[in-house]
Protein backbone atom coordinates (compact mmCIF):
# COMPACT_ATOMS: atom_id res chain seq x y z
CA UNK A 1 0.00 0.00 0.00
CA UNK A 2 1.32 3.48 -0.78
CA UNK A 3 2.77 5.94 1.70
CA UNK A 4 -0.09 8.38 2.30
CA UNK A 5 1.73 10.88 4.50
CA UNK A 6 1.10 14.44 3.39
CA UNK A 7 1.76 17.84 4.97
CA UNK A 8 -1.07 19.81 6.55
CA UNK A 9 -0.80 22.59 3.96
CA UNK A 10 -0.89 20.15 1.06
CA UNK A 11 -3.79 18.21 2.57
CA UNK A 12 -5.99 21.30 2.93
CA UNK A 13 -5.03 22.51 -0.55
CA UNK A 14 -5.73 19.15 -2.14
CA UNK A 15 -8.75 17.85 -0.23
CA UNK A 16 -10.81 20.96 0.53
CA UNK A 17 -12.46 23.56 -1.67
CA UNK A 18 -15.03 26.34 -1.44
CA UNK A 19 -18.61 25.12 -1.36
CA UNK A 20 -17.75 21.51 -0.52
CA UNK A 21 -19.59 19.20 1.87
CA UNK A 22 -17.03 18.91 4.66
CA UNK A 23 -17.27 16.53 7.61
CA UNK A 24 -14.98 16.54 10.61
CA UNK A 25 -14.44 13.54 12.79
CA UNK A 26 -14.65 13.86 16.44
CA UNK A 27 -15.33 12.18 19.75
CA UNK A 28 -18.09 14.48 20.97
CA UNK A 29 -17.89 18.25 21.51
CA UNK A 30 -14.79 18.60 23.69
CA UNK A 31 -12.77 15.47 22.88
CA UNK A 32 -10.76 14.30 19.87
CA UNK A 33 -11.22 16.26 16.66
CA UNK A 34 -9.12 17.40 13.70
CA UNK A 35 -8.95 20.95 15.04
CA UNK A 36 -5.52 21.78 13.59
CA UNK A 37 -6.92 20.92 10.14
CA UNK A 38 -9.75 23.39 10.72
CA UNK A 39 -7.20 26.10 11.61
CA UNK A 40 -5.40 25.42 8.32
CA UNK A 41 -8.70 25.67 6.41
CA UNK A 42 -9.19 29.13 7.91
CA UNK A 43 -5.57 30.04 7.01
CA UNK A 44 -6.25 29.04 3.41
CA UNK A 45 -9.51 31.04 3.38
CA UNK A 46 -12.01 28.26 2.65
CA UNK A 47 -15.59 29.50 2.42
CA UNK A 48 -19.23 28.58 1.66
CA UNK A 49 -18.78 25.24 3.40
CA UNK A 50 -21.62 22.79 4.03
CA UNK A 51 -20.50 21.12 7.24
CA UNK A 52 -21.63 17.74 8.53
CA UNK A 53 -20.95 17.69 12.24
CA UNK A 54 -22.32 15.41 14.91
CA UNK A 55 -20.94 17.50 17.74
CA UNK A 56 -19.63 20.96 16.91
CA UNK A 57 -16.24 21.18 18.72
CA UNK A 58 -13.97 24.24 18.64
CA UNK A 59 -13.28 23.42 14.98
CA UNK A 60 -16.81 24.22 13.81
CA UNK A 61 -16.94 27.10 16.31
CA UNK A 62 -13.83 28.58 14.62
CA UNK A 63 -15.00 27.92 11.04
CA UNK A 64 -18.32 29.63 11.84
CA UNK A 65 -16.60 32.59 13.51
CA UNK A 66 -14.50 32.92 10.34
CA UNK A 67 -17.68 33.23 8.27
CA UNK A 68 -16.64 30.13 6.31
CA UNK A 69 -19.84 28.14 6.81
CA UNK A 70 -23.10 28.47 4.85
CA UNK A 71 -24.86 25.34 6.05
CA UNK A 72 -24.58 22.90 8.95
CA UNK A 73 -26.29 19.59 9.65
CA UNK A 74 -25.71 18.74 13.28
CA UNK A 75 -26.60 16.63 16.32
CA UNK A 76 -25.38 18.96 19.09
CA UNK A 77 -23.96 22.47 18.70
CA UNK A 78 -22.47 23.30 22.11
CA UNK A 79 -19.26 22.71 24.05
CA UNK A 80 -20.83 20.81 26.98
CA UNK A 81 -19.60 22.19 30.33
CA UNK A 82 -17.54 24.85 28.50
CA UNK A 83 -20.82 26.44 27.39
CA UNK A 84 -22.52 27.47 24.17
CA UNK A 85 -20.25 27.69 21.11
CA UNK A 86 -20.15 31.45 20.67
CA UNK A 87 -18.76 31.58 17.13
CA UNK A 88 -21.42 29.18 15.87
CA UNK A 89 -24.14 30.98 17.82
CA UNK A 90 -23.22 34.33 16.30
CA UNK A 91 -23.26 32.93 12.75
CA UNK A 92 -26.59 31.13 13.24
CA UNK A 93 -28.37 33.97 15.01
CA UNK A 94 -27.38 36.55 12.40
CA UNK A 95 -28.53 34.27 9.58
CA UNK A 96 -25.11 33.84 7.94
CA UNK A 97 -25.19 30.10 8.65
CA UNK A 98 -28.29 27.96 8.18
CA UNK A 99 -28.33 25.14 10.72
CA UNK A 100 -30.43 21.99 10.34
CA UNK A 101 -30.99 20.05 13.57
CA UNK A 102 -30.76 16.30 13.95
CA UNK A 103 -29.81 14.32 17.06
CA UNK A 104 -26.63 12.55 18.12
CA UNK A 105 -28.06 9.27 16.87
CA UNK A 106 -29.87 10.33 13.73
CA UNK A 107 -26.82 12.15 12.33
CA UNK A 108 -24.62 8.98 12.51
CA UNK A 109 -27.54 6.89 11.22
CA UNK A 110 -27.53 9.14 8.14
CA UNK A 111 -23.80 8.46 7.76
CA UNK A 112 -24.46 4.73 8.17
CA UNK A 113 -27.07 4.96 5.39
CA UNK A 114 -24.58 6.86 3.22
CA UNK A 115 -21.83 4.34 3.86
CA UNK A 116 -24.16 1.40 3.16
CA UNK A 117 -25.55 3.14 0.08
CA UNK A 118 -29.06 2.64 1.47
CA UNK A 119 -31.83 4.80 0.01
CA UNK A 120 -32.83 5.84 3.54
CA UNK A 121 -32.65 4.71 7.14
CA UNK A 122 -35.75 4.22 9.32
CA UNK A 123 -35.82 6.03 12.65
CA UNK A 124 -37.94 6.27 15.77
CA UNK A 125 -36.01 9.28 17.07
CA UNK A 126 -35.85 12.81 15.60
CA UNK A 127 -39.43 11.77 14.79
CA UNK A 128 -42.65 13.07 16.34
CA UNK A 129 -40.96 16.30 17.45
CA UNK A 130 -39.88 19.60 15.89
CA UNK A 131 -36.74 17.87 14.64
CA UNK A 132 -39.11 16.32 12.11
CA UNK A 133 -41.63 19.16 11.75
CA UNK A 134 -39.25 22.15 11.47
CA UNK A 135 -36.66 22.41 8.69
CA UNK A 136 -34.17 25.23 8.31
CA UNK A 137 -33.38 23.98 4.79
CA UNK A 138 -37.09 23.94 3.83
CA UNK A 139 -38.30 26.97 5.84
CA UNK A 140 -41.72 27.22 4.21
CA UNK A 141 -42.76 23.64 4.91
CA UNK A 142 -44.70 23.29 8.15
CA UNK A 143 -44.89 20.59 9.20
CA UNK A 144 -41.87 19.73 7.08
CA UNK A 145 -42.26 16.72 4.82
CA UNK A 146 -38.89 16.80 3.02
CA UNK A 147 -36.61 16.51 6.03
CA UNK A 148 -37.70 13.31 7.83
CA UNK A 149 -40.74 12.06 5.88
CA UNK A 150 -43.09 9.70 7.65
CA UNK A 151 -43.12 6.20 6.17
CA UNK A 152 -45.02 2.99 6.91
CA UNK A 153 -43.18 -0.11 8.04
CA UNK A 154 -44.10 -2.69 5.35
CA UNK A 155 -44.04 -5.50 7.95
CA UNK A 156 -46.14 -4.12 10.81
CA UNK A 157 -48.00 -1.25 9.16
CA UNK A 158 -46.75 1.12 11.87
CA UNK A 159 -45.29 4.51 11.01
CA UNK A 160 -41.77 5.79 11.57
CA UNK A 161 -39.43 8.43 10.11
CA UNK A 162 -37.09 8.12 7.10
CA UNK A 163 -33.61 9.64 7.30
CA UNK A 164 -31.79 10.65 4.14
CA UNK A 165 -28.26 9.26 3.61
CA UNK A 166 -25.20 11.48 3.92
CA UNK A 167 -22.10 11.15 1.73
CA UNK A 168 -19.75 14.02 2.58
CA UNK A 169 -17.20 15.00 -0.08
CA UNK A 170 -14.40 14.66 2.42
CA UNK A 171 -14.16 13.61 6.08
CA UNK A 172 -11.17 14.74 8.09
CA UNK A 173 -10.95 12.46 11.08
CA UNK A 174 -8.75 12.72 14.13
CA UNK A 175 -7.10 9.50 15.26
CA UNK A 176 -4.66 8.88 18.08
CA UNK A 177 -2.24 6.96 15.89
CA UNK A 178 -1.95 5.94 12.25
CA UNK A 179 0.62 4.21 10.12
CA UNK A 180 1.73 5.68 6.78
CA UNK A 181 -0.89 3.61 4.94
CA UNK A 182 -3.81 5.05 6.88
CA UNK A 183 -4.51 2.18 9.27
CA UNK A 184 -5.63 3.89 12.45
CA UNK A 185 -6.35 3.33 16.13
CA UNK A 186 -8.54 5.70 18.14
CA UNK A 187 -8.26 5.74 21.94
CA UNK A 188 -11.32 6.79 23.90
CA UNK A 189 -14.78 6.62 22.37
CA UNK A 190 -14.76 6.52 18.56
CA UNK A 191 -18.28 8.00 18.66
CA UNK A 192 -19.35 8.46 15.04
CA UNK A 193 -15.96 8.29 13.33
CA UNK A 194 -16.38 4.66 12.22
CA UNK A 195 -19.45 5.24 10.04
CA UNK A 196 -18.10 8.65 8.96
CA UNK A 197 -14.99 6.96 7.55
CA UNK A 198 -17.26 4.74 5.39
CA UNK A 199 -19.74 7.42 4.33
CA UNK A 200 -17.31 10.05 3.03
CA UNK A 201 -16.09 10.01 -0.58
CA UNK A 202 -12.54 10.83 0.59
CA UNK A 203 -11.01 10.35 4.04
CA UNK A 204 -8.07 12.28 5.48
CA UNK A 205 -6.68 11.32 8.88
CA UNK A 206 -5.11 13.78 11.28
CA UNK A 207 -2.93 11.75 13.67
CA UNK A 208 -1.21 12.72 16.92
CA UNK A 209 1.28 9.90 16.38
CA UNK A 210 2.66 7.93 13.46
CA UNK A 211 3.38 4.31 14.33
CA UNK A 212 4.89 1.36 12.54
CA UNK A 213 2.50 -1.00 10.71
CA UNK A 214 3.69 -3.75 13.10
CA UNK A 215 1.56 -2.01 15.73
CA UNK A 216 -1.55 -2.55 13.61
CA UNK A 217 -0.62 -6.19 13.05
CA UNK A 218 -0.38 -6.62 16.83
CA UNK A 219 -3.83 -5.07 17.48
CA UNK A 220 -5.84 -5.57 14.28
CA UNK A 221 -9.12 -5.73 16.22
CA UNK A 222 -8.57 -2.15 17.33
CA UNK A 223 -8.00 -0.80 13.80
CA UNK A 224 -11.52 0.51 13.24
CA UNK A 225 -10.37 2.69 10.34
CA UNK A 226 -8.27 0.58 7.93
CA UNK A 227 -6.06 2.05 5.23
CA UNK A 228 -8.30 0.75 2.44
CA UNK A 229 -10.78 3.59 3.10
CA UNK A 230 -8.17 6.31 3.71
CA UNK A 231 -6.71 8.72 1.14
CA UNK A 232 -4.17 10.70 3.16
CA UNK A 233 -2.53 10.91 6.57
CA UNK A 234 -1.45 14.17 8.22
CA UNK A 235 0.86 14.06 11.23
CA UNK A 236 0.13 16.89 13.63
CA UNK A 237 1.04 16.41 17.31
CA UNK A 238 -1.17 18.16 19.90
CA UNK A 239 -3.55 18.58 16.98
CA UNK A 240 -6.71 18.41 19.09
CA UNK A 241 -5.58 21.26 21.35
CA UNK A 242 -7.27 22.92 23.22
CA UNK A 243 -9.49 19.83 23.50
CA UNK A 244 -8.32 16.49 24.84
CA UNK A 245 -6.85 13.48 23.05
CA UNK A 246 -7.56 10.50 25.28
CA UNK A 247 -4.36 8.69 26.30
CA UNK A 248 -2.14 11.62 25.29
CA UNK A 249 -3.24 14.98 26.72
CA UNK A 250 -6.02 16.66 28.68
CA UNK A 251 -8.16 19.67 27.73
CA UNK A 252 -6.49 23.06 28.09
CA UNK A 253 -9.26 24.45 30.24
CA UNK A 254 -7.97 28.00 30.23
CA UNK A 255 -7.67 28.13 26.43
CA UNK A 256 -11.06 26.45 25.93
CA UNK A 257 -12.75 29.35 27.72
CA UNK A 258 -10.44 31.97 26.18
CA UNK A 259 -10.98 30.73 22.61
CA UNK A 260 -14.74 30.60 23.03
CA UNK A 261 -14.78 34.09 24.54
CA UNK A 262 -12.73 35.48 21.63
CA UNK A 263 -14.97 33.86 19.01
CA UNK A 264 -17.98 35.68 20.45
CA UNK A 265 -17.19 38.90 18.55
CA UNK A 266 -15.75 39.76 15.14
CA UNK A 267 -12.92 41.72 16.80
CA UNK A 268 -12.14 38.87 19.18
CA UNK A 269 -12.08 36.43 16.27
CA UNK A 270 -9.63 38.64 14.32
CA UNK A 271 -7.28 38.79 17.27
CA UNK A 272 -7.57 35.04 17.88
CA UNK A 273 -6.87 34.36 14.21
CA UNK A 274 -3.82 36.62 14.18
CA UNK A 275 -2.23 34.73 17.09
CA UNK A 276 -3.52 31.16 16.96
CA UNK A 277 -4.35 30.59 13.29
CA UNK A 278 -1.90 32.74 11.34
CA UNK A 279 0.76 32.79 14.07
CA UNK A 280 2.64 29.64 13.00
CA UNK A 281 3.83 27.88 9.87
CA UNK A 282 5.37 24.65 11.10
CA UNK A 283 4.62 22.02 13.72
CA UNK A 284 7.51 23.38 15.81
CA UNK A 285 6.06 26.91 15.75
CA UNK A 286 2.61 25.54 16.58
CA UNK A 287 3.98 23.71 19.62
CA UNK A 288 5.88 26.83 20.70
CA UNK A 289 2.64 28.77 20.55
CA UNK A 290 1.03 26.37 23.02
CA UNK A 291 4.17 26.47 25.16
CA UNK A 292 6.47 23.81 26.53
CA UNK A 293 5.29 24.17 30.10
CA UNK A 294 1.61 23.98 29.12
CA UNK A 295 2.21 20.91 26.95
CA UNK A 296 3.99 19.12 29.80
CA UNK A 297 1.05 19.87 32.08
CA UNK A 298 -1.54 18.67 29.57
CA UNK A 299 0.39 15.48 28.86
CA UNK A 300 0.27 14.61 32.55
CA UNK A 301 -3.07 12.88 32.00
CA UNK A 302 -4.80 10.23 34.10
CA UNK A 303 -5.50 8.39 30.83
CA UNK A 304 -1.77 7.90 30.00
CA UNK A 305 -1.89 4.17 30.80
CA UNK A 306 -4.04 3.67 27.69
CA UNK A 307 -0.91 4.32 25.58
CA UNK A 308 1.26 1.70 27.30
CA UNK A 309 0.75 -1.12 24.75
CA UNK A 310 1.71 1.05 21.77
CA UNK A 311 4.79 3.05 22.82
CA UNK A 312 7.44 0.85 21.19
CA UNK A 313 6.02 1.48 17.69
CA UNK A 314 5.90 5.29 17.80
CA UNK A 315 7.94 6.97 15.07
CA UNK A 316 10.20 9.86 16.05
CA UNK A 317 9.95 13.25 14.33
CA UNK A 318 13.17 12.44 12.45
CA UNK A 319 11.79 9.14 11.20
CA UNK A 320 8.57 10.86 10.10
CA UNK A 321 10.59 13.49 8.24
CA UNK A 322 12.42 10.72 6.38
CA UNK A 323 9.12 9.02 5.54
CA UNK A 324 7.77 12.32 4.20
CA UNK A 325 10.83 12.79 2.03
CA UNK A 326 10.72 9.22 0.79
CA UNK A 327 7.20 9.48 -0.65
Amino acid sequence: MPNKLISMQEAVAKYTWDGMMYAHGAALPVGSDSIAFGREMVRQGRKNLHVISNCCTQQLNLLCAAGAVDKIEIGFSGLEVYGFANGLRRAVENGKTILEDYSNLTLPLRLLAGGMNWPFCPTISSYGSDQQWRSAFHPDEYPATSKIPEITDPFTGRTCGALSPLKPDVAVIHVTMADIHGNAIMLGTEWSRYELSRAAKKVVLQADLIVDTACMRQFPNLVRIPGIVVDAVVYWPMGVWPQCSTGLYDSDEEHMFYMNKMLKTEEGYEEYKRIYVDGYNTIEEYLELIGEEKIAKLKNTTTAHLMDPYRKWIKSDEEIEELMEGR
Partner: peptide, 23 residues
Protein backbone atom coordinates in the same frame (compact mmCIF):
# COMPACT_ATOMS: atom_id res chain seq x y z
CA UNK B 1 -44.66 31.66 12.83
CA UNK B 2 -45.02 28.66 10.55
CA UNK B 3 -42.02 29.81 8.50
CA UNK B 4 -38.71 28.68 9.96
CA UNK B 5 -36.54 31.70 10.76
CA UNK B 6 -33.12 31.87 12.44
CA UNK B 7 -33.47 31.68 16.24
CA UNK B 8 -33.10 34.80 18.37
CA UNK B 9 -31.01 32.65 20.72
CA UNK B 10 -29.34 29.48 19.52
CA UNK B 11 -29.07 26.83 22.23
CA UNK B 12 -27.32 23.46 21.84
CA UNK B 13 -29.82 21.27 20.00
CA UNK B 14 -30.98 17.92 21.26
CA UNK B 15 -27.76 15.93 21.39
CA UNK B 16 -28.80 12.48 22.64
CA UNK B 17 -31.72 13.78 24.71
CA UNK B 18 -34.13 13.09 21.85
CA UNK B 19 -33.17 9.39 21.88
CA UNK B 20 -33.61 9.31 25.67
CA UNK B 21 -37.06 10.89 25.31
CA UNK B 22 -38.12 8.51 22.51
CA UNK B 23 -36.43 5.33 23.74
Amino acid sequence: NSRYLPPKVRLNGSGGANEIACG
